[in-house]
């Protein structure tokens, strides 16, 4: 299925009170596969009994095979993955990472790229930016954040005329209308961050007559926690319990039920699973299924979604 890399943590740095940067290298200094700007890896986190996975965008130079870097924001309301990274991981530890995969590629036919990162959503742009620099492609980057203190991205962004920082606490809000109204033909816009920001950019671009094919976004986040529930496996009758701070995919893996996956963030479609029967409600937290598919309750994305009700049987 998916081949893994066993990598050593060689650096941990505080970028802000909430965000840490991790650098991974091969323990024998072997070269790692290079990737493309916007790629992510999923990190396995063995936390006691529980094996969690979270996906993080790579923030290092895509052409640098000596190591991978990620930035992790501590989410105290999350399932505990980011807390694990912050509290339990130390320099010298070996962690299992997936191979880089990319669901947020640059469209290299573009004449210019406008990159918009909100908060920790700046991360995929850090690698994209290096790729664009390397190829001498025109771009501008906008980084929007609440406060200077929380602005983890500041430490990682060079000072340059085409890099714009908007700190709302300082009163420098992003003016999406003005930003998008003045772009040359062949421009593509990419947004990563809170859903509200992604929706605002898409709406503004559509209003200005940008075709949807020039507007890109990545919204994937870590799976949210929720109330515990159970699912039944149709082929074996096995009942799999899902804990509050565990995703359905992680629970299936713990029970040795094989489900294919890639992004673990509800964006790639790989883990799509057929529902045999559903007596209750599926909390669809993915970005993959359409409105109609959600309403039908015939499909579920176990990497992100949860269940509330009497019985959920999966065709596995």
């Amino acid at each position: 299925m998916i081949s893994k890399l066993n990598l050593k943590v060689v650096e941990i740095e505080d970028l802000s009170p909430l965000v840490k940067r991790f650098r991974f290298e091969d323990p024998d200094k072997a070269a790692l596969p290079v990737f493309s700007g916007g790629a992510h890896v999923s990190v396995e986190m063995p936390d006691g009994e529980m094996l969690r996975h979270n996906s993080y965008s790579l923030i290092s130079d895509p052409y640098d095979a000596t190591g991978y870097e990620i930035a992790v924001r501590r989410e105290d309301q999350g399932r505990g993955g980011s807390k694990f990274m912050h509290e339990k991981v130390a320099v010298g530890d070996i962690l299992k990472l997936s191979m880089p995969a990319n669901l947020f590629q640059l469209d290299l036919r573009a004449k210019k790229h406008v990159l918009i990162g909100g908060g920790i959503g700046i991360t995929p742009f850090l690698s994209q930016m290096r790729q664009l620099e390397m190829h001498g492609q025109a771009y501008e980057l906008h980084y929007a954040t609440h406060s200077r203190e929380e602005a983890a991205g500041l430490a990682l962004l060079p000072e340059a005329a085409h890099i714009h920082v908007h700190i709302s606490e300082d009163g420098s809000r992003m003016d999406l209308g003005a930003m998008l109204a003045d772009q040359p033909l062949g421009c593509h816009v990419y947004t990563c961050g809170p859903e509200g920001l992604i929706a605002a950019v898409a709406e503004q671009a559509a209003m200005l007559g940008w075709p949807a094919t020039s507007v890109h976004s990545e919204a994937f986040t870590a799976p949210p926690p929720g109330a515990p529930f159970e699912v039944t496996i149709a082929s074996t009758g096995q009942v799999v319990p899902v804990a509050a701070n565990q995703s359905l995919l992680e629970a299936l893996e713990a029970a040795s039920v094989v489900v294919d996956y890639s992004c673990r963030g509800g964006g790639c479609g790989r883990c799509e699973t057929t529902v045999t029967s559903c007596d209750g409600d599926i909390e669809h937290n993915d970005f993959w299924l359409s409105k109609e598919e959600r309403a039908e309750k015939k499909k579920i994305m176990p990497c992100m979604s949860r269940f509330k009700g009497l019985a959920l049987v999966l065709d596995l």
Partner: peptide, 8 residues
């Protein structure tokens, strides 16, 4: 060729 999207 100048980058105008097909959809436009």
């Amino acid at each position: 060729g100048s980058g105008l999207p097909q959809e436009a």
